[in-house]
């Protein structure tokens, strides 16, 4: 793995608060420690069945899943039903509202994990949550293969797909609910 603390889109330096790079183990620990995590799975997860399968494994461990973009199709193909389609703009807008009831109706989420989302769209949504989802604070974790400065916790840029898949496997393996 070659980790570089530069944004994947190199000019995307938002300000003085930038994402902390975490390992797969730390990402898993953060998700495990959260009360109401939400895994937001985007269209890039469709590039390989592996990613949808790993998301489903996470879902089976009790992490709620919102499928954005076209990723819902991947879950449907697998016959997995414990997932809801949302437009990414729409769900981010809801997340920033402390009164939102969450995707299961039991209240807003305290941790949001971004996975398989188009880099620049994800970055903007993470920026919204960083700046406006503060009371209570929503912790954002990106487990995409990009360094995301607008996330609170993020993987670094990862060139090798094999390396990245290993990290995802590790996260899913270590998440405990």
């Amino acid at each position: 793995m070659r980790a570089r603390e530069v944004p994947f889109d190199i000019a995307n330096i938002p300000g003085q608060e930038t994402g902390r790079i975490v390992s797969a183990e730390v990402a898993a620990a953060l998700i495990s420690a959260s009360h109401r995590p939400l895994l937001v799975v985007g269209s890039e997860a469709m590039r390989d069945e592996f990613f949808v399968e790993k998301a489903i494994e996470m879902g089976e461990k009790g992490v709620a899943i919102a499928a954005t973009g076209k990723s819902i199709r991947g879950f449907m193909r697998k016959g997995y039903k414990k997932v809801q389609y949302f437009n990414l703009h729409d769900i981010t807008n809801r997340l920033r509202d402390p009164d939102w009831k969450g995707i299961d109706g039991n209240g807003n989420h305290d941790t949001v994990i971004f996975f398989g989302i188009l880099y620049y769209y994800a970055s903007q949504m993470l920026s919204c949550l960083k700046n406006f989802a503060l009371n209570p604070l929503i912790r954002t974790i990106s487990i995409d293969r990009y360094y995301h400065p607008n996330a609170r916790f993020t993987f670094p840029n990862i060139e090798s797909d094999e390396e990245y898949k290993k990290m995802i496997e590790k996260v899913v393996e270590l998440v405990k609910r």
């Binding site: 608060e17 703009h89 981010t92 807008n93 903007q124 920026s127 919204c128 700046n131 406006f132």
Partner: peptide
């Protein structure tokens, strides 16, 4: 309602 996603902080 306006939804904001700052490009720069």
């Amino acid at each position: 309602k306006p939804f904001y996603a700052p490009f720069c902080d």
